[in-house]
Computed example of a mutant assay.
Amino acid sequence: MGAFIVLEGGEGAGKSTAVTVIREYLISKGVPPEDILETREPGGTEIAEKIRTILKEKNPREQLTSESELLLMYAARSQLVNCVIKPSVSQGKFVIGDRHDLSTVAYQGAGRGIPLDKIAAIRDLAIGSLTPDLTIVMDIEPEAGMRRARKRGDLDRFEVENIDFFHRIRNCFLEEAGKHPDRIKVVDAGQDLEHVKQDIIKTLENSGICSAG
């Protein structure tokens, strides 16, 4: 069967925890652990991880332009999609992604202000028509998310942006979910952990794509 399931959301939304919940759910449905892959973006392959370092690190000597940021995101994503995601799903495996293309629409589109038609042109070249079978947006107030992010330690190049940047991103995630309610679902990540887990599981149950066994 196989499926590509993606977690999206702003900083501190709890995507890593959600990945674990999904993995445990799939295993409970009889999916062998070796048939479940976890990916992160940017990153996920040797080359993509090197690109991730460039994108995440703060460089006081040279400012990364928004256009370079966009191109690097898709360079990393192209490696991941073509070397890992597509082959794995075609083999009947389940891929759980910590971020994917919707993050670019939110961060580089709404956040940086890059026109969506330009993003779409690069997307078409880099990954073609690949669309996740299910996207779960972990929604949280940006202020609350950043409080969580600060507790993790040093902030990366994205996390030091102003709060308005993160509000634009959050609004974009919610707007996209409203446009595509069949494949993009929203979970309130500001709840207590147990309720968040229950909502993720309910979303998986209702999706119908995780019933392999």
Results as ranks from 00 to 15, higher is better:
Gly2Phe: 11
Phe4Trp: 11
Phe4Glu: 09
Val6Leu: 02
Val6Tyr: 03
Gly12Pro: 10
Ser16Arg: 13
Ala18Val: 12
Ala18Lys: 12
Val21Ile: 15
Ile22Val: 08
Ile27Tyr: 13
Ser28His: 09
Gly30Ile: 06
Val31Thr: 13
Pro32Gly: 10
Pro33His: 09
Glu34Asp: 11
Asp35Pro: 06
Thr39Lys: 07
Glu41Thr: 02
Pro42Asp: 11
Pro42Leu: 09
Ala48Tyr: 04
Arg52Val: 00
Arg52Ile: 00
Thr53Gln: 14
Lys56Ser: 01
Lys58Cys: 03
Glu62His: 15
Ser66Met: 07
Leu71Ala: 08
Ala75Arg: 06
Ala75Leu: 06
Val81Ser: 01
Asn82Asp: 06
Pro87Leu: 02
Ser88Asn: 04
Ser88Tyr: 05
Val89Asn: 11
Gln91Ser: 15
Phe94Ser: 13
Phe94Pro: 13
Gly97Leu: 01
Asp98Trp: 00
Arg99Trp: 03
Asp101Met: 00
Ser103Phe: 02
Val105Gly: 00
Ala106Met: 01
Gly111Gln: 04
Arg112Trp: 08
Gly113Thr: 04
Leu116Ile: 10
Ile122Met: 07
Ile122Gln: 08
Asp124Lys: 05
Asp124Ala: 07
Asp124Gln: 05
Ser129His: 00
Ser129Asp: 01
Thr135Met: 00
Val137Ser: 00
Glu141Arg: 10
Gly145His: 07
Arg147Glu: 15
Arg150His: 14
Lys151Gly: 15
Arg152Ala: 12
Glu159Trp: 09
Glu159Ser: 10
Phe165Leu: 02
Ile169Pro: 03
Arg170Ser: 06
Asn171Thr: 09
Leu174Glu: 14
Ala177Lys: 04
Gly178Glu: 14
His180Ile: 00
Pro181Arg: 04
Arg183Cys: 03
Lys185Tyr: 00
Val186Gln: 05
Val186Met: 06
Asp188Lys: 06
Gly190His: 13
Asp192His: 15
Lys197Pro: 09
Lys197Asp: 11
Gln198Val: 14
Gln198Met: 12
Asp199Ser: 15
Ile200Pro: 15
Thr203Cys: 11
Leu204Val: 05
Glu205Leu: 10
Asn206Tyr: 04
Ala212Phe: 14
Gly213Val: 13
